[in-house]
């Protein structure tokens, strides 16, 4: 990936569902190429196949790059390689936690291969307690699950590992 001026503009586009992080922080922004005539080609990858935010992200990229003076912006959705939460930057994890969303732990190879799944404890982003429980594996968006903290009693979202 090349950090061109167009990349720097594209990288400022926030995620529409988690505006505290950008699409670059999340690893959704895969590549940006520009030619000497001001044409930009952007590649983005969805977090989940059905992520409804992709349409908005596409529009936001076109708006941001057009505003920055690029004459023609073309956004391509690429599926391979498949997005993983391992692509979240450390900065993204810090910002998510400050925002009240527990960031994903790094995935453990081989975990979850048995018939009955196991899950590791998630730390409450409000009070920091590890004494939490999952109330639903599926939350307000495809990429999050719902948790409750047993210490401070607050519910919170967890960015689930993928």
């Amino acid at each position: 990936m090349t950090r061109t001026p167009a990349w720097d503009v594209a990288a400022t586009v926030p995620d529409p569902e988690l505006p505290v992080v950008t699409i670059a922080d999340l690893g959704i922004l895969r590549d940006v190429t520009e030619d000497d005539r001001g044409r930009v080609h952007v590649q983005i990858t969805p977090t989940y196949s059905g992520c409804p935010a992709m349409e908005t992200i596409r529009d936001d990229l076109v708006d941001a790059l057009t505003l920055a003076g690029y004459s023609q912006v073309d956004v391509e959705l690429v599926l391979s390689p498949a997005w993983t939460t391992d692509w979240l930057t450390d900065d993204a994890r810090t910002k998510l936690e400050a925002y009240g969303v527990a960031p994903p732990a790094a995935r453990v190879a081989g975990a979850g291969d048995g018939p009955v799944p196991l899950s590791l404890s998630v730390r409450c982003p409000q009070c920091g307690s590890p004494d939490t429980r999952e109330s639903s594996r599926f939350g307000s968006t495809a990429c999050k699950s719902l948790w409750v903290c047993r210490s401070c009693r607050e519910p919170f979202d967890h960015f689930k590992p993928l």
């Binding site: 969805p46 989940y48 196949s49 059905g50 992520c51 409804p52 599926l79 109330s135 639903s136 594996r137 599926f138 939350g139 307000s140 495809a142 719902l146």
Partner: peptide
């Protein structure tokens, strides 16, 4: 309610796979 959300999410994944 959580199950509404779960089944909708699973359906959305399926829909995304179907679209691709």
């Amino acid at each position: 309610l959580e199950e509404d959300v779960a089944l909708a999410n699973i359906g959305l994944d399926q829909l995304g796979q179907a679209r691709a």
